[in-house]
Design a protein around this nucleic acid. Sequence first.
DNA 1: TCCTGTGAATTCGTTCACAGCC
DNA 2: GGCTGTGAACGAATTCACAGGA
Lengths: 230, 230
Amino acid sequence: MTSRPIPEASVARLPVYLRALVDMAERGTHTVSSEALAAAAGVNSAKIRKDLSYLGSYGTRGVGYDVEYLIHQISRELGLTQDWAVTIVGLGNLGLALANYGGFAERGFRVAALLDVDDRKVGRQLVGLEVAHFDDVERVVKEEEISIAVLAVPGHVAQDVCDRLVAAGITSVLNFAPTVLQVPPGVSLRKVDLSIELQILSFYEQRKVAEESVRHGTARRRLEQVDPGA
Amino acid sequence: MTSRPIPEASVARLPVYLRALVDMAERGTHTVSSEALAAAAGVNSAKIRKDLSYLGSYGTRGVGYDVEYLIHQISRELGLTQDWAVTIVGLGNLGLALANYGGFAERGFRVAALLDVDDRKVGRQLVGLEVAHFDDVERVVKEEEISIAVLAVPGHVAQDVCDRLVAAGITSVLNFAPTVLQVPPGVSLRKVDLSIELQILSFYEQRKVAEESVRHGTARRRLEQVDPGA
DNA sequence: TCCTGTGAATTCGTTCACAGCC
DNA sequence: GGCTGTGAACGAATTCACAGGA
């Protein structure tokens, strides 16, 4: 019913299921089992069933889930039945790439404003929008009823820019800047960080190299303190 | 002290700590407590101490951690004391932005090859590198000893491209394509997905709106300032 | 028979709280 | 007195395993 607190981890997977379901619908599939959806989403079937059970009992025992119906339910749960106005802040390499990226409109995210502080960029036309000066953030956020900001500014100004966005009424921030941001309670924050991801990969990559050399008896002691006893 | 299986969740935080520590070092800080590092990294101090304890006992009771020493230890643990050769595959908007992004070299990730299938792009000079044709992936990966691939290709070809990368010897993939990829065991995979992140934000954003109306749209939270307007 | 929905069991991750050392 | 390092307690997330409906 109304009082179900869907676990964060489940929420984060719903978009993945949704995408898999949309693909299936496009290929003409009408019904899907938890097993099949699990395969498409790269998880196991128990997880699918648990996650979907948080939304309600939308499956049919012995049959599976109706693809279209499930798409509708997940979309609704994620708030994708309404349009969200988004602003992209910072139009460097990454901001420009994001602005040109088609993926926003795809599912109800409308880029409603582009903001930058650089006078050479302000006033320019980009993907059908005129770049506004960041000083106008308050007015723009209000006029366009923007609730989500995509931050693509240099790290050293990110916290300041974020504070001003929040002051202007933004309640969700997707941060691409390589900085840990602090936001007040009530404001949602997610981050996307290329170099953190690479460093995580590096960790596991190094492990592989280490294991490899152990297997080949060429282990170097420099990086791994091998457990001496027991 | 026994050979440590560092939990995944801890590994994912080490790069955040590292960045905070590097910032501190640049500002001339020599010693840091778990409390101070926690504040900078946006976590709590118990987590810092636990995470760091997986690496060893690098702190001093009553004092804290030596910043430089900790930077060194974390870097070593993450495998950042060596250089990793990276290839960027797919030079559309995003791939280009990534190629131009300075963040790679920052910490030992050298962009060693740019790959695409588009003949108009192959042969061009970009950030000091000649774009190679993806058909040469095998040769390029071997010659440059590349272990990490950054995938920025359209979703519908991502799995195929990924398979060929793995066949060519790639053992880590950072996927920017909006697709769930399957990789064989032994290959690490991480994904960065703009629209999934937006959808997660949408979920919580919707919750806020719902709560707001439950409160009759009157009760405003502290720093939040919502203008009904329209 | 088949496949969902879900309690129970388990694993993983976080936080507490304090002993131990500086 | 201050702060780390870590068992123990707690909580979240995952997986198991099976009852029950189509």
